[in-house]
Design a protein around this nucleic acid. Structure first.
Length: 464
RNA sequence: GGUCCCUUCGUCUAUCGGUUAGGACACAUGGUUUUCAUCCAUGAAAGAGGGGUUCGAUUCCCCUAGGGACCGCCA
């Protein structure tokens, strides 16, 4: 059997969003599951709108989430000559023809169709017309001679059999008036040349597929398998588009979502394997299949992303977690100073305890990273006379102990609570504020112990 | 408007003719706790509607409704 080959083929005309990433992920997983190949093809034939900036963003996004591809990116515009050659061959074979309609003429027809509320379809005017009738002042486009009789069936691996009347597919343009190839031509030629066996893409391409299959057949090429996956919808139920914000991977990484968690979320969005929710990388590859893909569009659910992220934070190794945290801090916050790295790493056990995101962990770690504690006005108010008194007493007491750990600290705090006729909050809160600059955070003993006696005394003494 | 697709808790989904329709997230309540954004327990929550087929339909078929995608010399 032929080696499975899949591809992801975005156009660099906007930032890659999470829906595109999911399509890439499905293609990638499918090929890995079949021990096949996966390619990235940049469809940059729209020169006006294609930008290097977007191309880089696409490449970086895939890299971030761990999707790797064979060779280097395949740049579609490098292969334009191949596409044009195919168009000419089709022309020679009589399977395509030159159309001399001006764009004004076409526009006029579309307008009229709209007024009459009838569907517009190119009227195939030049399909059988002689070249002798051709107006000299018009550069023709080349149109594909689409089937007009019967119907076609697309055996879609996700959607099942899709039947369509051939006459609803128009004679589509394959070469523009300026001689450049259009999408349906370029995509078919490239997919063929790259040896694609399976085309997995959003179902917004379904109608294109009927056009592309006709090109394959006209050229006597082997037709690949197609799988059209339902689109991801926004919470409003509309197709996720480049204009929607909060939908690129960067938007997620900057709030502290980890790539493995997002990959897991995306995998389970529109795909399932029994009741299993968590898939590590190997399991993703092992269990992924086309049968598990649902037929209906699914909505993005941010709370689910947080929840899976939290699961990963609590279940991956602390080594791995630390590396994610390090990258995160460097990219979006203040870099963790090298001499603090060990301390943070060792403290991860409790720092991650209440965190849903890397940002949460970072915030929990701030008091360890930064030795200068800033207390905002609200919290400052809580440090009243009583609180200051308690802190003073606390300093005195800890100066008497040699060991600095929970066993020695707990009696001290309990005693302070009793002697000052207060509750845990009365002691814990001022300490936490002085030590970390925040009312919230890790448990007080974790804070004390991770800071160490010297640092604790130092910070507490600075408060007046 | 035409063509095509879709429809199980709020959300992601399980079920491949027979289940008290299951799980996860979110939500609510209770409990633990040393701040709480942890943890544990419990609860509420779904087959769009109408016809068939069948001993039996969430599951198969049809209709209706709702939603979506496409309808470029964009990709």
């Amino acid at each position: 059997m032929k080696t499975v080959a899949t591809r992801f083929a975005p156009s660099p005309t906007g930032p890659l969003h999470i829906g595109g990433v999911r399509t890439a992920l499905f293609n990638w997983l499918y090929s890995k599951n079949k021990s096949g190949k996966f390619y990235l093809r940049i469809e940059d034939t729209d020169k006006e709108r294609s930008k290097d900036e977007f191309k880089n963003q696409i490449i970086n996004s895939l890299k971030w989430i761990g999707i790797n591809y064979e060779d280097s990116e395949y740049i579609q515009s490098d292969k334009i000559d191949d596409h044009i050659n195919v168009a000419n061959e089709l022309l020679k074979k009589g399977l395509a023809y030159k159309c001399y309609c001006s764009s004004d003429e076409i526009e006029e027809q579309k307008k009229r169709a709209k007024q009459k509320k009838i569907p517009y379809i190119y009227n195939r005017k030049w399909r059988d017309r002689s070249e002798n009738d051709a107006p000299k002042e018009i550069d023709p486009v080349i149109r594909f001679k689409s089937k007009v009789e019967d119907k076609s069936i697309l055996k879609d691996l996700v959607q099942g059999n899709i039947e369509i009347e051939n006459n609803t597919i128009e004679d589509f343009v394959i070469l523009r008036a300026d001689g450049s190839p259009t999408y349906n031509l370029s995509a078919s030629v490239d997919d063929h040349l790259m040896g694609m066996t399976h085309i997995i893409r959003g179902d917004d391409h379904k109608i294109n597929t009927f056009k592309q299959i006709q090109i394959y057949e006209a050229m006597n090429w082997e037709v690949p398998f197609f799988a059209h996956i339902p689109l991801i919808h926004t919470i409003e139920g509309k197709k996720l588009s480049k204009r929607d914000n909060a939908s690129t991977l960067d938007d997620y990484s900057k709030i502290g979502i980890m790539p493995n968690a997002l990959r897991n979320y995306l995998l389970r969005l529109g795909w399932s394997y029994k009741d299993k929710e968590i898939f590590d990388l190997d399991e993703s590859i092992k269990y992924f299949n086309l049968e598990g893909i649902g037929k209906s569009p699914s909505k993005l659910d941010i709370s689910r992303i947080y929840s899976i992220n939290e699961y990963y934070i609590k279940n991956i190794s602390e080594n791995e977690l630390f590396n994610f945290l390090k990258d995160y801090s460097k990219n979006f916050k203040d870099k963790i100073p090298e001499f603090k790295e060990e301390k943070i790493k060792k403290s991860l056990t409790f720092l991650k305890n209440k965190a849903k995101t890397l940002e949460d962990i970072y915030n929990n770690s701030k008091f360890l990273i930064n030795d200068n504690i800033e207390i905002d006005q609200e919290d400052q108010k809580l440090l009243d006379k009583n609180a200051n008194e308690i802190i003073k007493l606390f300093i005195n007491k800890i100066s008497e102990i040699s060991e600095f750990n929970r066993d020695t600290l707990e009696p001290i705090i309990n005693k302070l609570i009793k002697e000052n006729n207060t509750n845990f909050k009365g002691v814990g809160q001022p300490l936490r504020i002085c030590l970390t600059g925040s009312k919230f955070g890790p448990g007080i003993y974790d804070i004390l112990y991770s800071l160490g006696k010297e640092q604790v005394v130092k910070r507490l003494s600075q408060i007046r």
